[in-house]
């Protein structure tokens, strides 16, 4: 009888405990934990090659910039509260920060509004010196409060082309600022749509309208016009390096971006189309390298509620019911007469 009594007592205790835990959960205590949350500035390349439509959305061609924006929208939604996102744009040889990092949950509307308004019309100049723009972004992040990480969204299409031997040099210390290069675009070279500054489409860039060769290979100033110096004879870079004669076409220059990323100790990710790409991006942004530990209030309501639920379920689980039926509990006299 003794063991039986103990067994019958347990559900009562469980119920009492569940009541207390649920009341606590309702009150909603929080603890502040230093959790890793994304903190960075996402810089979008808004040069003309980003208008190449080599993504598909609902069977329709989608530009690189649009694909990046759609994926970033999803990532913005997927980031946990406490993450901080800022926006910047890249053109010419520099990065311009539009919005300093902001907490994503409280400012989702503002952040997505600014993301929506980032387009090719923001481009203030025609050049696209990506490495320099990336250096610029890293240098800026280095002097900003809390040193945000940099996510650089680009197709790697340098215009004018650069010479593998004479690449711009980063004067900072690689690794000081964490970052991710998000490569956008397809690997098949595609014609680049041409837009005027107001965003009106003017067909495609033609071969004779863009600089096909890097400045060094065009020959340095020599006594006779276009005489070449010996050192510039053979400049062979990785496979998808500048493609002399084909610069009016654009593909994702992934090998180039990977080389740059490695040199600067940044991560590299290719943006795949559709929701899979957005998912990969969200995961990459959530990685701890790009994050900072921020005191984040964590609600204890859910764990408390979960324990309380387990207790309640235990009380009413069939196994715990091998005792006077619930029905008979309402009939104390019957029970007492039994014992």
């Amino acid at each position: 009888m003794k063991t039986g009594f103990a067994f019958r007592l347990a559900p009562r205790r469980a119920l009492m405990l569940a009541t207390i835990l649920l009341a606590l959960a309702a009150w909603g205590p929080t603890v502040t934990l230093p959790l890793a949350r994304f903190h960075g500035i996402i810089v979008l390349d808004v040069t003309q090659s980003m208008n190449v439509e080599d993504y598909l959305a609902d069977e329709r061609p989608q530009s690189r910039l649009d694909a990046a924006r759609v994926a970033l929208h999803e990532a913005l939604q997927a980031l946990p509260c406490g993450s901080r996102v800022g926006w910047g744009v890249f053109t010419e040889y520099r990065t311009l920060v539009l919005l300093a990092p902001l907490e994503t949950c409280a400012h989702f509307r503002e952040l997505s509004g600014t993301l929506d308004s980032i387009d090719g019309r923001m481009s203030w100049a025609g050049r696209s010196e990506i490495a320099k723009g990336l250096f610029w972004a890293l240098r800026q992040a280095d002097v900003m409060p809390a040193r945000p990480s940099i996510v650089f969204v680009t197709d790697g299409h340098e215009a004018p082309p650069i010479n593998p031997r004479h690449r711009p040099h980063y004067d900072g210390k690689p690794g000081t600022v964490a970052g991710l290069i998000l490569g956008v675009g397809g690997l098949q070279p595609m014609p680049i749509p041409k837009f005027d500054p107001e965003g009106r489409r003017l067909g495609h860039w033609r071969a004779d309208e863009v600089q096909q060769q890097d400045t060094y290979s065009q020959g340095r100033a020599t006594s006779i016009g276009r005489e070449k110096l010996v050192e510039t004879e053979e400049d062979v870079g990785p496979v998808d390096w500048a493609t002399s004669g084909n610069e009016h076409m654009s593909a994702l220059r992934e090998r180039y971006l990977q080389v740059v990323a490695e040199e600067l100790k940044l991560a590299y990710l290719r943006l795949n189309g559709g929701s899979a790409g957005a998912h990969d991006l969200s995961r990459a942004l959530g990685r701890s390298a790009l994050a900072q530990r921020v005191p984040t209030p964590v609600s204890l309501g859910y764990p408390l509620g979960a324990v309380a639920l387990a207790l309640l379920a235990f009380v009413y689980a069939p196994g715990a019911l091998r005792r006077p039926a619930l029905r008979s509990r309402a009939q104390p006299r019957t029970l007492s007469s039994r014992s």
Binding site: L96, L98, P101, L102, G113, S117
Partner: peptide, 30 residues
């Protein structure tokens, strides 16, 4: 050379501050 919208209409103080302080970084354009 081009206008850029850094922030659409909002009264969220943090967002307004972020849009203003973003201009502390880097030098101006041509």
């Amino acid at each position: 050379a081009r206008p850029m919208r850094a922030l659409d209409f909002t009264s969220a103080p943090d967002a307004i501050r972020a849009a203003i302080t973003a201009n502390d970084v880097g030098r101006g354009l041509g």
